[in-house]
Design a protein around this nucleic acid. Structure first.
Length: 776
DNA sequence: TACACCGGCCTTTTT
DNA sequence: GGCCGGTGTA
């Protein structure tokens, strides 16, 4: 048992306490994954059949990584018989086997968020209620809340409080919407993400024999990231574990970042109540990061009221301070980051794979991609608008979904007239209405089109088109019986007219759509190859569909991830580590997000997110923020994130000029950044505080009211007169945004020309008299 | 029936 | 800036 050597005391305890309930509180970087994998290995070496072990993770990435590490310890065949995966994928697998208890076919479709929203929109439309009030997204998140708290439609109607709450929210039809939505999904033979958990609960509660079967099977249960489980997941785990109580949960309350998905931090906080005999182990030594990083992170998280007390520490080197870069714009920020990576790559022989760029929202990727590409730095974007969510990809997949599950009316409506084949909205409505009236599915009507034709009220031309379409689908289905997934998909892409249609569009976007289709086909080929190699692999179409439905980021994982800069959201980065982290977009309303600044709870979750980001880094962290950002189609002013001011200044170091240090020093000491009305204006904040050129150059007075010059004095610590514009100055232009003055030309004050390089717009030559430049 | 155009809306994070 | 839904036109 060599692997036990090198564990510290609490780690050893966590690995070797095999029986009974165990809670491992694992601080960031404390070797959590190592403990989990070794624990599993230890179970197996102690004679436990891997078949009896269930390990649940939160992301596919985590599952995959852990499986690989376990395989190294205990061998491939042992690792393979483990049940390891995300909650959703494991229980989808179980529902495929047992779903018939609940009336679901084993080939049920899994709806992603978009599919579910489409179904919901139709429901709302059919009910004839105000779509302005019943916004699909809003309604969906309510439904999701219900489901995650096991409030079924019936339970809803038996719960006056809930109904009243919805009524107060001016949504008295919520129950009806919920009912119709659930019915529609059921009829389509489909489950949404929440259903995978809800239905599992239903299965385990209503059918004791099923529960007993899986209790006996999963004698040892491990749950990673337990702080991120929601109520539904909590109940599943509890039910499965109740027989043997060999349950080990691992988590860190400081890293709970999924409450928007229903994660309930009390699941971990109350573990001791559920299992009074539980052993608790705390892993507090951080082996990942420098002291500076760990200490700074501790300072940040200490601002949260709600947390377990713990003392995460590092005995690594002190390390460098966190460096902060203040940029003019998102583009400028991206250029800094790419230049910085380039330089460290050259001067410190860093691999590109040593770097991560972490951001709050996916929409921030674009600028970094551009900047990295310019410098020929290889990179990989994780997550984001997943490949499988692109329209053209979903379209082709919709054809394939129909082949697997004919009742999937969402897929059918997507493709029945795409590419256009003359089956318009009117026709589709007639079909749906008729099918509903006969209590049939549309596919059943299409199966017997000749028989129903007289009642449909459609002309012969349309009937022929419908017949042709359905014959094509049927032919694909026949083909699926003999041919492999790739060949069928290729045939679908060709015969449906999809490829031809996409190829007609010669714009870059159009070309990339064709490429995406090609890539989808390639990934199918890859899937087949992979499944054939695996013992008892399953290269079927339905297995392929399941794989992609539950994995946002599998996409082209085939290509080598070696030596590329990683770009991802902070959420995705959880559990990962990188020598050098760039944490970007540290601005108010972006991070913390404007959606999460309202309540203390929301803000604390943002802070935990910040903590997660910071603790990804091993050696060095770079923060950056932009004073203006191109978003929502225009340039928006931004101010630095409050999180920056929450870190003591001695952990920090400004990369660029003087003025910023002033800000950091001050805000390190007080919290004026929180004040609604700061005692003194901050130099970067409001337009009104910026200087103008009016006195010297006779520029027409700006339309906006300006504050007295006294403000400007504070803005400019060097004390030079506020009206001068000099080469090197940062200026703002009403239309072009923020830029830097490169060159001034002319002596006549009436006719001075300035060459300004704008962060977003590039180089412009401006006549000062006309260009209303504001010095910043 | 198909498509172009317009206007309003929003936009966090993931399974 | 991009998406969606509605509307007007060929």
């Amino acid at each position: 048992m060599d692997y036990l050597k090198g564990l510290n005391e609490p780690q050893f305890e966590a690995v070797t306490t095999l029986e009974g309930p165990l809670m491992v509180l694992a601080g960031a970087g404390s070797g959590k994954t190592r403990v989990l994998t070794m624990r599993i290995a230890h179970l197996i070496t102690n004679g436990i059949d891997p078949f009896n072990i269930l390990a649940l993770t939160f992301t596919n990435k985590a599952a995959k990584e852990m499986k690989e590490r376990i395989a190294k310890l205990v061998g491939d065949s042992n690792a393979r018989s483990l049940w390891m995966g995300t909650f959703h994928s494991v229980f989808a697998r179980i529902l495929r086997i047992e779903g018939h208890y609940l009336g679901y076919p084993s080939n049920f479709t899994i709806y992603d968020t978009q599919d579910a929203l489409n179904v919901l929109k139709k429901v709302i439309k059919d009910l004839g209620i105000d779509a302005e009030i019943y916004k699909a997204k809003k309604v969906m998140s309510r439904i999701s809340q219900y489901k995650n708290n096991l409030i079924t439609v019936n339970a809803y109607f038996n719960n006056p409080e809930l109904m009243e709450a919805d009524e107060r929210a001016n949504m008295k039809h919520m129950g009806e919407v919920y009912r119709k939505y659930v019915e529609a999904c059921f009829k389509n033979g489909a489950m949404d993400f929440d259903d995978l958990l809800l239905k599992t609960n239903e299965l385990l509660t209503r059918f004791p024999e099923v529960l007993a079967k899986y209790q006996d099977r999963f004698r040892y249960i491990l749950v990673d990231e337990y702080q991120d489980t929601n109520h539904s997941q909590y109940l599943i785990v509890k039910a499965l574990a109740s027989k043997f109580e060999n349950i080990c949960v691992v988590g860190d309350d400081a890293q709970s970042i999924y409450s928007f998905r229903g994660a309930n931090i009390y699941n971990i906080l109350n573990f001791k109540k559920d299992y009074p005999d539980a052993v608790t182990v705390s892993l507090e030594q951080n082996y990942r990061s420098t002291q500076n990083i760990v200490d700074a992170a501790n300072v940040v998280i200490s601002k949260n009221l709600q947390q377990f007390k713990k003392n995460v520490f590092s005995e690594n080197e002190v390390g460098e301070k966190i460096k902060i870069y203040r940029s003019l714009s998102d583009a400028d920020e991206a250029n800094f980051v790419s230049a910085n990576i380039y330089e460290l790559h050259n001067t410190q022989q860093r691999h590109f794979s040593d770097f991560a760029i972490l951001y709050r929202t996916n929409s921030q990727t674009r600028a970094f991609e551009d900047a990295l590409r310019k410098k020929n730095i290889p990179y990989k974007v994780y997550g984001g608008l997943s490949f499988y969510q692109r329209k053209e990809v979903k379209d082709l997949l919709a054809y394939l979904r129909i082949l697997v599950n004919e009742n999937d009316s969402e897929a059918l409506s997507r493709i029945i007239n795409y590419p256009a084949r003359g089956i318009g909205e009117t026709t589709q409505n007639k079909l749906v209405v008729f099918a509903d009236s006969q209590n049939l599915s549309v596919s059943q009507v299409l199966d017997n089109l000749g028989f129903y034709a007289p009642q449909l009220g459609l002309n012969n031309g349309i009937l022929t088109k419908l017949g042709d379409f359905w014959a094509m689908i049927k032919a694909f289905q026949v083909m699926l019986k003999t041919d492999n997934v790739y060949d069928v998909a290729m045939e679908v892409a060709k015969r449906s007219g999809l490829i031809k249609f996409l190829k007609e569009d010669a714009t870059p976007e159009g070309i990339s759509r064709v490429e995406n289709i090609q890539e989808l086909l390639n990934s199918m080929q890859g899937f087949i190859d992979e499944q054939i190699q695996i013992e008892d692999g399953d290269p079927s179409l339905s297995n392929f569909m399941e794989n992609i439905a539950l994995s946002a980021d599998t996409q082209t994982d085939k290509d080598d991830d070696t030596n590329k800069v990683s770009l991802m959201t902070i959420h995705l980065s959880k559990g990962l580590e990188f020598p050098i982290v760039h944490l970007v977009g540290l601005e108010e309303n972006l991070f913390p997000s404007f959606m999460s600044s309202a309540t203390r709870e929301d803000l604390e979750e943002e802070r935990r997110l910040f903590y997660v980001a910071l603790t990804r880094a091993e050696k060095q962290v770079f923060f950056s923020y932009a004073v203006s950002r191109f978003q929502w189609g225009k340039i928006t002013d931004a101010e630095p994130s409050r999180f920056l001011s929450e870190i003591d200044s001695h952990y920090l170091e400004m990369i660029n000029p003087v003025a910023e240090l002033k800000f950091i020093n001050r805000s390190g000491l007080d919290s004026s950044i929180f004040d609604e009305t700061p005692s003194e204006p901050r130099f970067y904040k409001k337009k009104e505080e910026k200087k103008t050129l009016e006195r010297n150059t006779n520029v027409p007075p700006p339309k906006k009211t300006l504050k007295p010059v006294a403000t400007a004095r504070i803005i400019n610590p060097a004390g030079q007169s506020s009206q001068d514009i000099e080469v090197g100055d940062m200026v703002r232009h009403d239309r072009f945004g923020v830029g830097k003055v490169e060159f001034l030309d002319g002596t006549d004050p009436q006719n001075i020309k300035a060459k300004v390089i704008f962060a977003n717009e590039g180089e412009k030559n401006l006549i000062l008299k006309f260009a209303k430049l504001t010095k910043i």
